[in-house]
Amino acid sequence: MNRREAILASGATLLAAPAVRAQGATWPDREITILVAYGAGGSTDVCTRALAGEAEKILGVPVQIVNRTGGQGTSAPAQVASMRPDGHTLATAGMAALAILPHVLDLPYTLDSFTFLPGYARYLYGIAVPAESPIRTAQDLIAQGRQRRVTFAAAGAPQNIGMFELNKKLNTRFGFVPFPGGAEAVTAAIGRHVDFVVQNPPEMLPALQSGRLRLIASASDVRWKEYPDVQTLREQGVDLAVDSVLGLVGPKGIPQDRLERLNTALLQAARSPGVGETVSRFGMVPAPTPATEFEAMQRGAFAEFGPHLRENGLARR
């Protein structure tokens, strides 16, 4: 509880209220809108809706969701970057929109266009091969990749960048074949049109459960809860963890008191069991992340990914 809230609570409400209102302590006084960068029904959308539902209870005003899709998930942050920094309009943004696509697309924003807010969910990645494939472990995959060109399907960043990193570190020849969506990437692997696929659980689970694909490693820091016996890449001696945290951003220059209020409320919402449960159900890992940490994460990744993207001809310059 900050000082102003303490004053309110102490019973000085009547006298203090007008003065305090001017400074924004009763903020928010109207609804908050979150622009979701992906379509309704997807994991980003559903997890953000769960977060909004909790935040609504804490902030005492409606928190509404508007799906602002397009530009590979950059339209929502781009729109928010140009809005009034009153804290009433926020957008979802992850690794792709903040750390990768600014290298690739000509975007109207940079990382400095935003006020960073908390993160709440971590995408989970896995590497799977067709059931008939001789590759059974991460080490098999590396060995194959050193002998010949091994193709993989993925919907895009950041999974492909992880594989590019391996190519550089381990002298493998993993060839990236992009697909417009995770489901298409998985289908290509089922049909053995590519050697393996790197995607998220929601798209991969049906194929894994029916035995058409075999999970050989979690490409994240943690194992998949559905496949507790399958080790992560690191556990198998391959130094890579594809990491992407989903969080919120607002326009640059949200007043400090409002920012504190948002940070506290959103982090509290991210920690609630309801949000955690929804996030897990959608194949993500609950990851309540304070705003400063979320910002550091994205800035670090932005600096790190630039060279990889340029070397593979995917960056603008």
Binding site: G39, A40, G41, G42, D45, V46, G181, A183, P202, L205, P206, A207, Q209, S210, R281, F282
Partner: peptide
């Protein structure tokens, strides 16, 4: 694709 999303939201795993 949206129908798939709707099924998943409801905890139905097509396959």
């Amino acid at each position: 694709a949206l129908l798939l999303g709707a099924l998943l939201v409801h905890g139905v795993q097509p396959g």
